[in-house]
Amino acid sequence: MHRYSDTDIMATGILKMIMLHIMKDGEASGYDIIKKVEAISGKKPSTGSIYPLLKKMEREGWISGRAEDGKTYYSLTEIGKEHVAQINEVKHDFIKKLHQSIALASETFEDADVQDLMKDMHDLHRGMRVPVKEQIELLAPLIHQVADHLETDTDRERVRSVILRAIDELKKI
């Protein structure tokens, strides 16, 4: 029986989208992609996940590879750029539907957590000027730390209190 790791599960679609997103900014080696995926997701993908996907995307014509000094650097082809554009369209539709669902839940349940989430969504929509990739890279360690605490019996209000203090400190900057 094969055991699937988090990376195996991520590789089915999300990993491919992340890799395309990384190459959207310019060419990258497999090693560069592994490091950037780790920075974005908080989990280091295996070479056994990355390189077969690179070869598959290359066969499909989404990316092209160029060898230099024993490394292969990959970049998007026109077909790959079209896929990135399609992914962005799907992402925007998904976010819109998610926003509508949260708004409905907020009005229906009058739950403070849902209303806070709704406010956060509005704040994000109103104009985070920092690119999402940079936001994710900056926030990933915090998100993973919070997730680790929430998986244990850590008091949620204590975690929330720490986050609120951090927000207050950030506002002072």
Rank of each mutant, 00 (worst) to 15 (best):
residue 1 M to S: 10
residue 2 H to G: 09
residue 3 R to I: 10
residue 3 R to P: 04
residue 3 R to E: 13
residue 3 R to G: 02
residue 5 S to K: 11
residue 5 S to A: 13
residue 6 D to Y: 07
residue 9 I to S: 04
residue 11 A to I: 04
residue 11 A to Y: 04
residue 11 A to C: 07
residue 18 I to Y: 09
residue 19 M to V: 00
residue 19 M to G: 00
residue 20 L to G: 02
residue 22 I to W: 00
residue 25 D to K: 15
residue 27 E to P: 10
residue 27 E to Y: 05
residue 27 E to A: 09
residue 30 G to I: 00
residue 31 Y to G: 15
residue 31 Y to S: 15
residue 34 I to V: 15
residue 34 I to G: 06
residue 35 K to V: 06
residue 36 K to P: 01
residue 38 E to H: 03
residue 40 I to C: 09
residue 40 I to P: 00
residue 41 S to P: 06
residue 42 G to I: 08
residue 42 G to P: 07
residue 43 K to S: 04
residue 45 P to T: 07
residue 45 P to H: 10
residue 46 S to Q: 00
residue 47 T to N: 14
residue 49 S to C: 11
residue 51 Y to H: 10
residue 51 Y to M: 09
residue 53 L to F: 03
residue 54 L to Q: 00
residue 55 K to A: 11
residue 55 K to Y: 09
residue 57 M to H: 05
residue 58 E to I: 00
residue 58 E to S: 10
residue 58 E to T: 03
residue 62 W to F: 11
residue 62 W to H: 09
residue 62 W to C: 02
residue 63 I to P: 00
residue 64 S to C: 09
residue 68 E to H: 11
residue 69 D to W: 15
residue 71 K to D: 07
residue 73 Y to C: 13
residue 74 Y to Q: 08
residue 74 Y to D: 02
residue 75 S to H: 09
residue 76 L to E: 02
residue 80 G to C: 04
residue 80 G to A: 04
residue 81 K to A: 08
residue 82 E to W: 07
residue 83 H to P: 02
residue 83 H to G: 04
residue 84 V to F: 05
residue 86 Q to P: 06
residue 88 N to D: 13
residue 88 N to M: 12
residue 91 K to M: 09
residue 91 K to C: 00
residue 91 K to A: 13
residue 93 D to F: 06
residue 93 D to W: 02
residue 95 I to Y: 10
residue 95 I to L: 15
residue 95 I to K: 13
residue 96 K to N: 14
residue 97 K to A: 06
residue 98 L to Y: 11
residue 99 H to P: 02
residue 99 H to S: 15
residue 99 H to M: 11
residue 100 Q to H: 15
residue 102 I to C: 08
residue 102 I to M: 05
residue 104 L to P: 00
residue 105 A to H: 07
residue 109 F to L: 14
residue 109 F to W: 14
residue 109 F to M: 13
residue 110 E to W: 02
residue 110 E to K: 15
residue 111 D to V: 12
residue 112 A to Q: 14
residue 115 Q to E: 12
residue 116 D to K: 15
residue 116 D to G: 01
residue 116 D to A: 14
residue 117 L to G: 13
residue 118 M to G: 06
residue 118 M to I: 08
residue 118 M to W: 10
residue 118 M to H: 15
residue 119 K to Q: 12
residue 119 K to W: 12
residue 121 M to W: 04
residue 122 H to I: 15
residue 127 G to L: 10
residue 127 G to T: 01
residue 127 G to I: 00
residue 128 M to D: 06
residue 128 M to L: 12
residue 128 M to T: 03
residue 129 R to Q: 14
residue 129 R to D: 03
residue 130 V to D: 09
residue 134 E to S: 14
residue 134 E to L: 13
residue 136 I to T: 10
residue 141 P to I: 05
residue 142 L to C: 07
residue 142 L to Y: 04
residue 143 I to K: 03
residue 144 H to T: 12
residue 145 Q to L: 05
residue 145 Q to G: 04
residue 146 V to W: 05
residue 147 A to K: 12
residue 149 H to F: 09
residue 150 L to G: 05
residue 150 L to S: 10
residue 151 E to D: 12
residue 152 T to Y: 11
residue 152 T to Q: 12
residue 155 D to Q: 05
residue 155 D to R: 02
residue 156 R to S: 14
residue 157 E to V: 03
residue 158 R to P: 01
residue 160 R to N: 12
residue 161 S to R: 13
residue 162 V to S: 08
residue 163 I to E: 03
residue 164 L to H: 11
residue 167 I to V: 12
residue 168 D to V: 08
residue 168 D to P: 04
residue 169 E to G: 01
residue 172 K to W: 01
residue 173 I to L: 14
